[in-house]
Write a protein that binds this DNA or RNA. Sequence first.
RNA 1: GGGCGAGUGGCGGAAUCGGAAGACGCGUUAGCUUUAGGAGCUAAUGCUCGAAAGAGCGUGAGGGUUCGAGUCCCUCCUCGCCCACCA
Length: 811
Amino acid sequence: MTSDVKKKTERYSPEAIEAKWQRRWAASGLHQTPDVSDKPNFYFLTMFPYPSGEVHVGHWYAYAPADTAARFMRMRGHNVLFPMGFDAFGLPAENAAIRRKMHPAVWTEKNMAHMREQFNTMGVAIDWRREVVTCYPEYYRWNQWMFLKFLEDGLAYRAMAPVNWCPKDQTVLANEQVIAGRCERCETPVIKRDLEQWFLRITKYADELLRFDDIDWPERVRIMQTNWIGRSEGAEIAFAVDGHAGETIRFFTTRPDTIYGATFMVLAPEHPLVAKVTASTRRSEVEAYVARARLMEEIERTSTERAKTGVDTGAFALNAFTGDKVPIWVADYVLATYGTGAIMAVPAHDERDFDFAKRYKLPIREVISPDGREHAALDAAYLGEGVMVRSGRFSGMRSEEGKRAVAEEAERRGIGGPSVTYRLRDWLISRQRYWGTPIPIVYCDSCGIVPVPESDLPVVLPRDAPFTAEGGNPLARVESFVRTTCPRCGQPARRETDTMDTFVDSAWYMYRYVDPKIETSFMNKEVGRRWLPVSQYTGGIEHAILHLLYMRFVCKALRDLGELWFDEPALRLQNQGIIVFGGKKMSKSRGNVETPDVYVGQYGADTLRLFMMFMGPWTEGSDWDAAGIEGSHRFLSRLWTLGVDEPSPGPRDREIDRAIHRTIRKVTDDLEGYRFNTAIAAMMELTNALQHARGQSRDDGIDALVLLVSPFAPYIAEELWERRGGKDSVHRQAWPSFDAALAAADEVTLVIQVDGRLRDRVTARVGLSEPAAKEIALSSEKARKAIDGQEIERVVVVPDRLVNIVTRRRS
RNA sequence: GGGCGAGUGGCGGAAUCGGAAGACGCGUUAGCUUUAGGAGCUAAUGCUCGAAAGAGCGUGAGGGUUCGAGUCCCUCCUCGCCCACCA
């Protein structure tokens, strides 16, 4: 190698070189990705952050490894798009406005400015020209546009429904945002309220969302989404209400085969028939029960620990199969939002119904028998399959068969038939908050609900609004916004003041990155065709259901509107685990963030990047503990010392060459599988080996290391590349290739076991024949001592690995 | 309660296929270097016995399959995540 190599005495000082390269890279536009190049395009997307104010260690954990993977793809010959933006609408901005008297827009801008700088410090290769910020009207007008398109197509609708309400945040929440009965953001227990709200019809795509055939996503995410969608097959059947002509109770069941055991019915407290059918003598008690249920927090209400409660309506339904009059009860263990909000209760074959029947002394009737015989009484519900008994003409039929037979019989009689139900609910997108996308709707006294014409978009969020701690939507109090004229009749009208769930924003941002400035469409489709769908997506596992499900839904909906030409937004997905600090996921809102600044100041960004990837497997997550960061820094210091060393002319060294090629192979394989920790370990090993090497092989090894380390630690690699006389940028170099022949060993350690216990090891040449290996093993002094005169039963030889001498003694 | 995943040195973690358990790193110990502190370098470091050579034990517990099990099978325990009265 030529050039001005410095004396070994110069120490690694990251501060100087990191600042230097930040300037130079920005000046040279190194991170700008062209839409067309001589290389194949690869869209590497990573979930964009909420601008909470600071890039903390949790962000580094998400973005540094993603950047490393993107840089790796670049070096492997792809034209990689690696964009970044901000998911900039949301509640924390509004809360900050109340607390600090700072407008959400100002707070958000300030945070984004700070975070852009911090991303720059991290050395992430972002093409900032393509930045997307969701709180700008240029962006959110397309939320509004999509909403209008969805509305036209029946994919958006307004409905009165029991919804989740967070009393603290004073807003409704989507099902996906209720975690264990609590608000996802503030952890306040959620209650149910009946409100008229806007929904997106995600359930239309339930079946398609269950298919993952064309995408390479982690099994874990696929299972979580599948469970969340919760497809159940069964039957929907209606029983007539006794004494109310024409009135029926529809219910869904996965066990139509148990219908002869339906000895009562249960309605959810919110069920519309409750008021209608309740007998006058029972009215006050039923009303009191319903009122109590509505006020109850969801955690308590849906707790499986709590004893089941209910009240008798005094009304009866007619079991269409047995002909019996069965009592109708109201109980909160039946959910208004699942199925039809009503069930046929079969205590003999359902645990919940069994408990309820025991408590309220309702009849229990066995209709499925494991052994085909009828039993007098049951100690517990029998949930398994069996033979139908006491089931009229179906008696004697296997329950598996009975499911279909009963559903078909119901269909013949015009009272129901086979049916499928999902756990998935339509996506409730209305939020009673200010800092979000206004829903483009006008309410007119004469025309009703009127969509804002597309030509009037965007409906701009007004800047001045009263931010107070009293709650209520500040937007509803902005008279100049609320008062408008009806687009249809021109009469005075009121605007919708609810804003959209911010998950709407993030459900399509990947389309905007390709050309964030385009004003004629949500996406520049001409450019989009070069990039989409996303080649590789990365992000936290915590979005397995929320964002990742919405994003798939919006993609399919836009496809059906003729706006997209693919079925899935991201072909491959890789999740990183969660970084836990003080027992919780690290996040600003949880107040447990660890700032990277102190580590960057002490060790440099390269060291912190490397350490985040070395801590453990990225996909598993980690407990944050900075102990050990020294090791990553020492590694880079050693690499530095090697890198700035004088070249050492001399002969090649076969062992070192082998180590170099093995390392290239290992790091390549590991990066393909996102195994950053073991890739780094391999580079450390090579570094250690090179310390003692001399000659050409040493220099080649150092050159290889500079390339290998460059996606992990971009600054030091670039500096060493320059100092060692490299042309252009290290980040524009091709990934080193390995020679399998050079990587191969010509000697191996042959392990000699006696009865499975290690007794000796000998060095042998690769490819030794079995008899030769056997002979070597049997001539081993240590092995002979262990055999100790026992008769040899057999000898197992695993070529190039081990020989196991099995004696008679072991039995 | 259901689903998924995991339990390996003092610590973080390695270990394609069933074939050398503990790579790599932290920490610790000793030595070199330094006025000192720090940093750096060299070596040792699973546990027990032993001066050593060596021997025994060892991947949550127990059983099994196998010449051979961290890895496969069964039972159980613990932890994490997701779902959780979903009919």
